[in-house]
């Protein structure tokens, strides 16, 4: 029986998900005993043209990280879908757009304009061209899509690995379960669906109801490293975020920013954070409520930090 085939690829990713594969360490060597890695550009020299002759569905499992930002990434996503039995959206970018999804607040033309025509270090602006004519050839460059979208807006995704990046243990479990054919039903997120608070070392200090007259910004105040952030008036997205990261940021004495994405069947993480924070406001007068809410700097940027591209408004 030939070894199963595995591939790893990155669309509008950052390399962090690749690092979480490299962090498998000895398990990565164990993986290469069990399977052939046929395509993994950060670590191996195989070229795109090696993928074309592969029969459809001949790759057993492919980990695709990064959202879809441009046309070349879209083509690669479709190609890998065709070549693979199981596609795992690896990391929150592939699952819900990730931080690059924040471009959705500005749109394609504005992000290009800033970088290529406005930044102060430019002496003369310009724009990358879809086609550039040199004396002997025409060089093509992929154009950006109008908006960045999560992977499942371009291809059918079988499983999701949350996190930024997903911890190596989750990646290992997903890969080896896939090779053993022991994955849950298609479409599921390969992590528990319990709020981060449940595994947070500060949970004991989190009262059932929190009453706040105002929010603080991290640079303004000191805080108790053992007590719940929300209870101290510092926004932590833990209650609206899926657990599974080991409360990493909390252990560094910083609040959660929601990189593990929403719990199961939550259609809009930002809206979930809105509802969560609303329960903390200790006022009933509309104007006073508005003042407390106005104390949150850039709420949309914080509540939708990793999931704007998958929000109700943006995914239409």
């Amino acid at each position: 029986m030939p070894k199963p085939k595995v591939a790893m690829y990155w669309l509008a990713g950052c390399g962090g998900c690749e690092e979480s594969i490299l962090d498998l360490g000895v398990d990565l060597l164990a993986l290469t005993d069990r399977a052939d890695i046929v395509f993994w550009p950060i670590a191996m020299d195989a070229k795109y043209r090696e993928l074309d002759p592969l029969p459809d569905n001949s790759i057993d499992v492919v980990l695709i990280n990064g959202a879809v930002r441009d046309e070349a990434q879209e083509r690669m996503a479709r190609l890998l879908r065709r070549k693979s039995k199981t596609v795992i959206a690896h990391g929150i970018c592939a699952q819900a757009g990730g931080v690059p999804g924040l471009a959705g607040f500005h749109g394609r033309d504005k992000i290009l304009q800033r970088a290529y025509q406005e930044v102060p270090s430019l002496e003369s602006g310009g724009l990358p061209q879809a086609e550039t004519q040199t004396d002997h050839a025409r060089l093509r460059l992929p154009s950006l899509r109008e908006s960045l979208v999560p992977l499942d807006r371009v291809i059918a995704v079988d499983y999701y690995l949350p996190g930024c990046p997903p911890p190596p243990e989750l990646v290992k479990e997903a890969l080896f379960n896939a090779l053993d054919g022991e994955l849950p039903e298609r479409g599921s997120v390969l992590a528990e669906s319990v709020a981060l608070c449940r595994t947070c070392p500060r949970l004991a200090s989190k009262p059932d109801t929190i009453h706040l007259k105002r929010f603080h910004r991290l640079y303004e105040v000191r805080w108790d490293p053992d007590r719940c952030f929300l209870e101290q008036g510092l926004i932590c997205l833990g209650p609206a975020t899926r657990g599974g990261c080991g409360a990493q940021c909390l252990k560094a004495n910083m609040p959660c920013r929601g990189c593990f994405g929403p719990l199961d069947n939550v259609s809009d993480m930002g809206a979930r954070v809105v509802a969560m924070l609303a329960t903390l406001l200790d006022e009933t007068d509309p104007e006073k409520l508005e003042n407390i809410a106005a104390g949150v700097p850039d709420p949309a940027g914080l509540f939708y930090r990793y999931t704007l591209a998958a929000s109700i408004i943006k995914r239409r």
């Binding site: 509008a12 990713g13 950052c14 390399g15 962090g16 998900c17 690749e18 690092e19 930002r69 441009d70 070349a72 990434q73 990730g98 931080v99 690059p100 924040l102 471009a103 607040f105 500005h106 504005k110 992000i111 290009l112 304009q113 800033r114 970088a115 930044v119 990358p128 992929p142 950006l144 960045l148 930024c164 990046p165 910004r217 991290l218 640079y219 920013r257 700097p297 850039d298 940027g301 914080l302 930090r305």
Partner: peptide, 27 residues
Amino acid sequence: DFKGFEKFCEGRAVEELPALTQKICGV
């Protein structure tokens, strides 16, 4: 490829930028 960090970091709370801009590169 291109993501546009210099534009979409506009409007963000400044204290979040060191954790936001690092998503440029996971290496």
